[in-house]
């Protein structure tokens, strides 16, 4: 279903709210918010919108200015007019050309954390035909061995 069909609340650009907003359905916010925004559905942050606070949403499309952290369960879209100062965390992320963004990003479409590659230890191979137990295989190359040495 298109995002416009799920938006039930629209706040105009002449509205200024001091406090937190919590909604279950989609919201299109074009005003000013000094507080947190929690939306269990999709949120649209308009071009003229300014939010000073954190956001916790399902999906969000940012075209305005946000000074705070954004946590999305699904997707974050930063459009070309977006200005974001804070950390973002989501499963999916798209960033258009022209975005201003300062902060940390943690995005992993696969679902697991994006960290250093874990080393999987290999179990020793036992040949059923041979009573002797084969020596354990060499440990896989660590990250330091895999990384390329870049020298000046």
């Amino acid at each position: 279903m298109a995002i416009q069909d799920q938006i039930r609340t629209t706040i105009g650009d002449d509205v200024e709210i001091n406090g937190n907003i919590k909604c279950e359905n989609g919201i299109q916010f074009n005003g000013k918010l000094n507080g947190d925004l929690t939306c269990a559905s999709q949120a649209q942050i308009g071009t003229s919108c300014t939010i000073k606070g954190n956001m916790s949403v399902e999906t969000v499309s940012v075209m305005g200015q946000v000074n705070g952290n954004i946590t999305a369960k699904d997707k974050i879209e930063l459009k070309s007019t977006a200005k974001l100062h804070g950390d973002i965390r989501a499963r999916r992320l798209t960033v258009e050309d022209g975005v201003t963004f300062v902060g940390k990003v943690e995005v992993n479409p696969a679902g697991a954390g994006v960290g250093p590659k874990p080393q999987e230890p290999k179990a020793p191979v036992v040949d059923l035909d041979d009573d002797r137990e084969t020596p354990p295989a060499k440990e896989p190359a660590s990250e330091s061995q895999l990384k390329s040495i870049f020298r000046r």
Binding site: L93, V95, K104, V105, P109, G113, V114
Partner: peptide, 15 residues
């Protein structure tokens, strides 16, 4: 910066 959907990120960005 341009990020296409499907990219994985764990970084500090200054764009």
């Amino acid at each position: 910066l341009i990020v296409y959907e499907g990219a994985a990120l764990k970084a500090y960005l200054h764009i």
